[in-house]
Design a binder for these strands. Structure first.
Lengths: 208, 208
DNA sequence: GTCTATACACCGATAGAC
DNA sequence: GTCTATCGGTGTATAGAC
């Protein structure tokens, strides 16, 4: 029993160090850019020497991998919360989903680059870190299904529209909001194209 | 007179070396990835030592800059050729433009990353290298104007749609053509949304 | 187990000899 | 114009101190 307690405290301490390293890594990435993250800069702020990080992570890419996983895990929760109480109207549902992803993406460039762009040369996310991403995408597909969108091609087009606007926003007007205005408009075009009923038709109590 | 001839030959030789370095740089970038380009790899294939490249380019980013400029210059010419004989119908024009950019983008990942993504950490294109990019975008805007699209927001949305599909294609299905199918469909949705007349209205014999 | 010191191979870039 | 030598910086492997 005492042995177990000791092991637990050790494991907790180890986990705390891991989290501290990741927190520092995020702050360095946000300050200097995701690609400019260096082990020495992280180690400095943690109060270690660079090679000591290898006690907690197998490589620099393993740190990126953990950051990737935690970012998607966080968005899975954020999105799960924001998509909890959805409007009844199909268009309203799509609008909420699109805004949720857009806002989360635009809020943090380094995070978006890690989550959705291949901006780090050798980095490929592990299957494990990728899992919350897959779940979140599936959740979005299900939501669109509940809004009456059955065609997978239409889903891909919507994702392309939202992703394209996020990219434009971050590349051409970081910190601004010019593309936010266009988001609802573009979603509306898409909804017309796939034949979603206008808002007024379904603003009553939920059918089924 | 003889002096001038000598200087010309020198200038020609120098320019030829520059072009050879750039050609090699493109081939290395395509083989190992744009970000994995190293001066030593380029120098090896050219038959030089790495520091000798600094005789012809001020820095590694200067090489990227020349590559960026030449890629956009090439697309300016390709697009100028492909958009020379346009259909009369507004939708046809937009379709041709969208396909032209999509095909050129999807044909070469390294080139697309350099032209349209910020995948190289410290690289910012010079104003000079950026010029053909600006001209080509303006040409696209003019073309859309000739198709009856006056609203700049609608133009941005179209660019986002095309760019989003290119990104998806390169990220999720490189070498495939799943998103090519979606391109016409997405453009059609957009054309409906901005109120372009259907093809049939203008599919008669060519006026003018 | 956790961290340090040392070292290695590679990178972009500079200085100076030829 | 090209070379050699070298610099500071990077990720990372390893041996050993505690």
């Amino acid at each position: 029993m005492l042995g177990e307690t000791t092991r637990d405290r050790k494991a907790e301490r180890r986990e705390a160090t891991r989290r501290e390293i990741l927190d520092v890594a995020w702050s360095v990435a946000r300050e200097h850019g995701l690609a400019q993250l260096t082990l020495r800069a992280v180690a400095d702020r943690v109060g270690m020497r660079a090679p000591s990080l290898y006690t907690h992570f197998a490589s620099k890419n393993a740190i990126y991998d953990a950051m990737f996983g935690s970012a998607w895990l966080e968005y899975e929760q954020v999105s799960g919360r924001e998509l909890r109480d959805l409007p009844d109207s199909p268009r309203g549902r799509v609008r909420v989903m699109a805004r949720s992803f857009f806002e989360y993406s635009v809020a943090d460039l380094a995070r978006y680059q890690l989550m959705n762009q291949r901006t780090i040369p050798g980095f490929v996310p592990s299957e494990e870190a990728f899992a919350p991403s897959v779940r979140t995408v599936q959740q979005a597909i299900d939501l669109l299904g509940s809004a009456g969108v059955a065609d997978r091609d239409d889903v891909e087009i919507l994702f392309a529209i939202i992703g394209g606007l996020v990219d434009q926003q971050l590349a051409n007007d970081p910190g601004g909001d010019t593309r936010r205005r266009l988001l609802d408009r573009a979603v509306e075009m898409w909804a017309d194209g796939v034949g979603l009923p206008p808002d007024s038709e379904t603003s009553g109590p939920e059918p089924h």
